[in-house]
Simulated assay, not measured.
Amino acid sequence: MRVSLFITCLADQLYPEVGESVVRLLHRYGCEVDFPELQTCCGQPAYNSGYQDEAREVARNWIRAFEHSDYVVSPSGSCTGMVHHYYPSLFENEPEWKAKAERLIEKTYEFSQFMVNVLGIKDLAAEFPEKVTYHPSCHAMRLLGVREEPGTLLAHVKGLELIDLPYKEDCCGFGGTFAVKMADMSEAMVCEKAANVCSTNASVLVGTDMGCLMNIGGRLNKENKPVRVMHLAQLLEEGVKRGESAGRK
């Protein structure tokens, strides 16, 4: 199976190890992964700021980068959600580009969606004997409907104790440009989210979007809270290595 990695801006510039974990896990299950170097931003920051013409131009470049891919997989529900939900409206008056966007939407997935729903993988023979809590990001959950897939993967990790995060469906306050435009409100929201994370006594916070994890992790770090922040792909890859060391097949 041929898969193209859509790395996203945050992962590319700040968290490349997340992309590496995704690629190694896909390789583990027989996927041939390529990285279209034409890819840049999906256009979400411009779109959210009201610059639709600029967002449209960026989206055209994204489509050019991936239009010949068999599958597109991303470690971000937010950026994947941008493609799925806003590209058709961006190209409403450009039938050729709208058709290209819709063809790409059919084969573009967030990482956990692809693992569970396309590859049919639920148990990676991973081992991670720690207390973990999960933050469901707004875009992955509300735009893409990613609700069960991360939990399905985590439920099959040996030794992992998944602790429910209080008010887990509340936004962390990042919201891309929202955190810049409404800084005070954003800070209040992330303080509340960080407090809820700490109330679980989990040693690890896991999620599927690095924007949210960067925001919550930054707050936890500022408060000197000993909570490790990981993308789901990182946790699963580390768990696979632990499982192999423990002799799991």
Results as ranks from 00 to 15, higher is better:
residue 12 D to V: 02
residue 12 D to P: 07
residue 13 Q to H: 12
residue 14 L to F: 08
residue 14 L to W: 00
residue 15 Y to M: 10
residue 15 Y to S: 08
residue 16 P to Q: 09
residue 18 V to G: 04
residue 19 G to M: 05
residue 19 G to P: 00
residue 19 G to Q: 01
residue 19 G to T: 00
residue 20 E to R: 13
residue 21 S to D: 08
residue 22 V to Q: 03
residue 22 V to F: 04
residue 24 R to I: 05
residue 24 R to S: 14
residue 24 R to K: 15
residue 26 L to A: 12
residue 26 L to R: 13
residue 26 L to M: 14
residue 27 H to Y: 13
residue 28 R to A: 15
residue 29 Y to V: 14
residue 30 G to H: 02
residue 30 G to S: 00
residue 31 C to K: 09
residue 31 C to Y: 09
residue 31 C to G: 10
residue 33 V to S: 06
residue 34 D to A: 07
residue 36 P to S: 02
residue 36 P to N: 06
residue 36 P to V: 04
residue 36 P to I: 06
residue 39 Q to L: 06
residue 39 Q to M: 01
residue 39 Q to S: 03
residue 42 C to M: 01
residue 43 G to H: 00
residue 43 G to W: 01
residue 44 Q to T: 05
residue 46 A to Q: 11
residue 47 Y to L: 15
residue 48 N to H: 09
residue 48 N to W: 04
residue 49 S to N: 09
residue 52 Q to R: 13
residue 53 D to G: 13
residue 54 E to F: 00
residue 55 A to T: 08
residue 56 R to G: 07
residue 56 R to Y: 05
residue 56 R to I: 00
residue 57 E to L: 08
residue 57 E to I: 02
residue 59 A to L: 01
residue 59 A to W: 00
residue 61 N to Q: 10
residue 61 N to E: 09
residue 63 I to A: 10
residue 65 A to R: 09
